[in-house]
Design a protein around this nucleic acid. Structure first.
Lengths: 100, 100
DNA sequence: CTGACAGTTAGATAATCATCGAACTGTTAA
DNA sequence: TTAACAGTTCGATGATTATCTAACTGTCAG
């Protein structure tokens, strides 16, 4: 993820990418599901939780990954994803700075 | 703004509306500008700050208002907007609940 | 009253994007 | 080796939406 000269901050581009990633309800639900699994969530499990095709799930996971919101790990046939808590924390920090 | 049976919480519909409202970079900048004026921001001032037509600004303000993010006050010819800090606080609370 | 200004609404356009099916790559199990 | 499965990529489609212009309403100053 890109950072500005101030370490730990999200620059505007990253911030907007995250905001867009969160704006789709289904994608937000997927992210929530991932976050709810303390550590890693398997892609197979996610596929079972939502009425969407593999193609669509793949698309959403790519968007979340591009936004820096999840980390992807591959183990041969399978895929595991995990919330990037550092990104999440920085995003919340930016939002919080809007008011007081 | 709609609330669930738990007072102070945003329901899913409201949450998604807010997320969508924040997803457009220009609209987020407008909201930021509004929030930066401690109390009220005049619409005339906002119009001067962004290279957009009155129609577009009107559209964005309506979206922000529909999302419950701003309060609108009219004084004869003029319009003033203010951040709704209660909504903002609840939105942040919902986001924070995603991780720990 | 009349012109200027604040803001809205309607309709058009162009861009973005969520979703799907189909065809693909890569991996494992039989 | 082959079939089944995990996931990706591509192209199409339909929905949403940011933006504009143009025409409108309402308010004030001269």
């Amino acid at each position: 993820m890109k950072t500005s000269i101030y370490h730990g901050d999200v620059d505007r581009r990253s911030f907007n990418r995250i905001s867009k990633a969160l704006a789709d309800p289904r994608r937000y639900e997927i992210l929530r599901r991932i976050a709810a699994c303390g550590s890693e969530a398997s892609c197979v499990m996610l596929k079972g939780k939502f009425p969407i095709t593999p193609a669509t799930l793949s698309h959403h996971l790519k968007e979340l990954s591009n936004a820096g919101l999840i980390e992807i790990r591959r183990n041969s046939k399978f895929m595991y994803v995990e919330l990037r808590r550092d990104t999440w924390k920085q995003y919340l920090k930016e939002l919080r700075s809007l008011s007081e």
